[in-house]
Design a protein around this nucleic acid. Sequence first.
DNA 1: CCAAAAGTGTTAGACCTACACCCATGA
DNA 2: TCATGGGTGTAGGTCTAACACTTTTGG
Lengths: 248, 248
Amino acid sequence: MIFKNFSVDCVIFGFDGNKLNVLLWRAEPELLEKFLTNKEEYEQIKDIFEKNPALKSENYWGLIGTHLPTEEDLDSYAKKLLQTTTGIENIYLKQVQTFGAPNRVSYSRVLTVAYYALINPKNHNLKLSPLAQAVKWFDIDNLPEVIFDTKEIIQTALAKLREEVQYHPVGFHMLPKKFTLTELQSLYEIVLDKKLDTRNFRKKIQNMNLLVDTNEKQTNVSHRAAKLYSFDVGIYNKLKEEGLNFRI
Amino acid sequence: MIFKNFSVDCVIFGFDGNKLNVLLWRAEPELLEKFLTNKEEYEQIKDIFEKNPALKSENYWGLIGTHLPTEEDLDSYAKKLLQTTTGIENIYLKQVQTFGAPNRVSYSRVLTVAYYALINPKNHNLKLSPLAQAVKWFDIDNLPEVIFDTKEIIQTALAKLREEVQYHPVGFHMLPKKFTLTELQSLYEIVLDKKLDTRNFRKKIQNMNLLVDTNEKQTNVSHRAAKLYSFDVGIYNKLKEEGLNFRI
DNA sequence: CCAAAAGTGTTAGACCTACACCCATGA
DNA sequence: TCATGGGTGTAGGTCTAACACTTTTGG
């Protein structure tokens, strides 16, 4: 069984080096069959899609999410959904908020628990997403036409991420394992929507002792090659626990 | 109609000058009739109570909350519930998280959206709560036996409050309109669970320009009377918007 | 005049802001 | 050798942490 009145949606953020993107899909009920191994749950989802042409429209994108099966734990289900969709284990996932306005979804009363996830798109292989007709990254400043209150959910998730990034070391989940300080800075600039001073940014980050110099450098760049850094997992966990001050 | 699988619970925090307390009730289905004016909704709630003796037990307290009526907006319903329970308008209310473990509630699968509310108990008249068999303040460090995962919800709400208080001027909602700096400091000490230096605390607070000297003093205290302060609403709103740094 | 809590200032160190030039690389 | 982005230091101001005594009040 699935809950007809209850769904789980994920706002998946990815940083491509220049822009903050969000992963949307056009869900395909036929394909969800692979995911919802319970026949009855699959039939119910399919039924919802069939009665609501908007859900299958070519022109409307939506957040990756489905109705919640009645026996699934909320957090685990969000995680499972993401793993199936992106092929990534150990995704950073955080509950944002539950949206419960009476008419937010056209086909029935649906309450949605939204999560946000942070991923590095280079670790993500869209071919691994067997559940959808289409899955695509969109620049958050240039979203396509989306279904229902998707835009509001994305904005709320973004506001939460913006808040979070100032007090916890979460932004790092959107970077490759080895990254340059310039990449890190532009990630912060984009999430905070604010230009930062390079020298001050570097001092601040380096005082945290979070970065480990890998002794490697970029290759094949037509300018001075930047040093590559990674994280000290111990310090990362400590900062995650204690919080940090990144109000810059 | 009410959602059998979906409820709204409020963790109501109150500060009495010495301890942080939480308001719990023993709900009384007969009395909920006044609140749930829709007959059918009331019958459904009553039915749930009758089939689950634990819900009516003399010995178990729970968070103020009910199943959600299918036509109600989530946030408005939480607000309405609080207003009816405490008699206070304009309560500071914030969504904490949705709890969705499969067996968190014994009588059926129930997902609960938890909110926290901050109130000043002196503005609160328990006699105004017509919905419960009993409503009572409990010290958060000394909770009674509670039903289901109430304790976990309270702890999560408290963690969220502790986080919130460091970056937004929310603590003030738990104080009387006119308060002393010592009251404000002990509120922060209790929420943050940490002793603070009086001189540094006062300097920091006063630099925010948030406090207005009322030119009044305590009366009938057997020691030097403290000055009473109130807030500048304009600055309060600005700080709420911009955030503040209260990591002390 | 005593008990109890209110109220206050200074100093040293840390952190923040603003700001401009040289360096390394590939084309 | 040029274009591009990488990388660095300093000075002035602000904020923070640590610390102890005097004042006011009622009993």
